[in-house]
Computed example of a mutant assay.
Amino acid sequence: MAEPNQYPLLAAPHVHLSGPVDQTMYQRFREQLANAPAEGTLVIAISTLGGDPESARLMGDEVRLLRDYTGRETLFLGKVAVYSAGATFMAHFPVEKRFLTKGTRIMIHERQLTTDIHLSGPLKSLPAQLKAKLNEIEESIRIEEEGFHDLVAGSRIGFEEAAERARANWYIEAEEARDLGLVLDVI
């Protein structure tokens, strides 16, 4: 575990996010980002049991744009629980910019879908309805795989292993995440 004085910026994050990842969290993220110092390293902390993966991707894309277009260093700090959509958000930070607090756990799983298919209308329209649902599923799988690739990029875990372990809700303790290279350090 890192010494307290090794990463002093992590003691006072500029953006604090907790609760479900959703549009409300995204709005809080945008407000805190707007109120953060305009220069220097930006620290973003999150604790979440999960939520909407698209909201997580949206926040992550905001971080990526900030980093890519301003050159600003952005650090991720996971606290207590970084589950599901929280891990999706974490994947938008390079592994050398990711940190977890002691005792934090990450949970990675496959995207979930619960749906009923109700076919209604002229017979010739029904195949299109089924194809539309299949397209939705296939695109969601592609997005999930992109996220797994981003999550493990630069770590000692391969995509195939991450995808396989995610099928059974993969819980990773902070020290294990560090040892696997998913985060730089535990504070």
Rank of each mutant, 00 (worst) to 15 (best):
Asp22Ala: 05
His109Thr: 15
Pro13Asn: 01
Ile157Phe: 08
Pro4Arg: 02
Leu10Arg: 05
His118Leu: 13
Leu123Met: 10
Phe76Gly: 02
Tyr171Phe: 14
Ala12Ile: 08
Asp68Cys: 09
Thr88Pro: 02
Arg98Ser: 03
Tyr171Trp: 05
Lys124Leu: 11
Leu75Cys: 08
Tyr7His: 12
Leu58Gln: 10
Ser55Phe: 02
Ala162Pro: 00
Ile108Glu: 06
His109Glu: 05
Ala177Val: 04
Lys133Trp: 06
Val63Phe: 01
Leu65Thr: 13
Ala132Pro: 10
Val15Asn: 05
Ile108Lys: 06
Thr70Ile: 14
Leu9Ser: 04
Tyr26His: 06
Lys97Asp: 06
Gly154Leu: 08
Ile137Glu: 14
His92Asp: 01
Leu49Phe: 10
Ile143Asp: 14
Leu58Arg: 07
Arg67Gln: 10
Leu126Ser: 04
Thr41Ala: 10
His149Gly: 01
Ala87Asn: 03
Ser155Leu: 11
Arg178His: 02
Ala153Pro: 01
Ala38Lys: 15
Leu130Ser: 11
Ala163Pro: 00
Ala128Phe: 15
Gly86Glu: 03
Met59Gln: 09
Leu119Tyr: 12
Ala85Arg: 05
Gly147His: 03
Leu42Phe: 04
Ala11Gln: 11
Thr114Gln: 15
Arg30Phe: 08
Phe29Tyr: 12
Ser155Val: 03
Gln32Thr: 15
Pro53Lys: 12
Gly78Gln: 02
Val63Gly: 02
Gly60Ile: 05
Asn5Gln: 13
Glu164Trp: 07
Ala163Thr: 12
Leu126Asp: 01
Gly121Tyr: 08
Glu39Ala: 12
Gly103Cys: 12
Gly154Tyr: 05
Leu126Arg: 12
Ser120Phe: 02
Thr88Cys: 11
Leu66Val: 11
Leu65Trp: 05
Pro122Leu: 15
Lys124Cys: 13
Arg57Ile: 04
Thr88Ile: 12
Ile44Lys: 02
Asn169Gly: 06
Phe29Met: 01
Ser84Gly: 07
Asn169Leu: 09
His149Leu: 14
Pro127Arg: 01
Ala12Lys: 04
Pro4Leu: 06
Arg72Gln: 07
Thr70Met: 02
Glu62Asp: 15
Tyr83Glu: 05
Lys79Ile: 11
Arg57Thr: 03
Ala38Arg: 15
Tyr26Met: 07
Thr74Asn: 06
Met90Lys: 04
Tyr7Trp: 15
Glu96Ala: 05
Thr24Glu: 12
Leu100Ser: 04
Val63Ser: 09
Glu138Tyr: 07
Pro94Phe: 00
Thr48Tyr: 10
Glu164Ser: 13
Gln23Ala: 14
Thr70Val: 07
Phe148Pro: 01
Ala45Asn: 14
Ile157Lys: 04
Phe89Cys: 07
Tyr26Pro: 00
Leu119Asn: 10
Ser18Ala: 12
Leu58Trp: 08
Val63Trp: 01
Arg57Glu: 11
Arg28Ser: 14
Ala85Lys: 03
Leu42Val: 07
His109Leu: 02
Asp68Leu: 09
Ile172Cys: 06
Gly51Asp: 09
Leu49Cys: 15
Ala36Tyr: 06
Met25Thr: 08
Thr114Trp: 04
Pro37Val: 15
Glu160Val: 05
Arg178Thr: 09
Tyr171Val: 06
Ile141His: 14
Ile187Val: 14
Asn169Cys: 04
Arg28Ile: 12
Glu96Tyr: 08
Tyr26Asn: 06
Gln129His: 07
Thr41Asp: 13
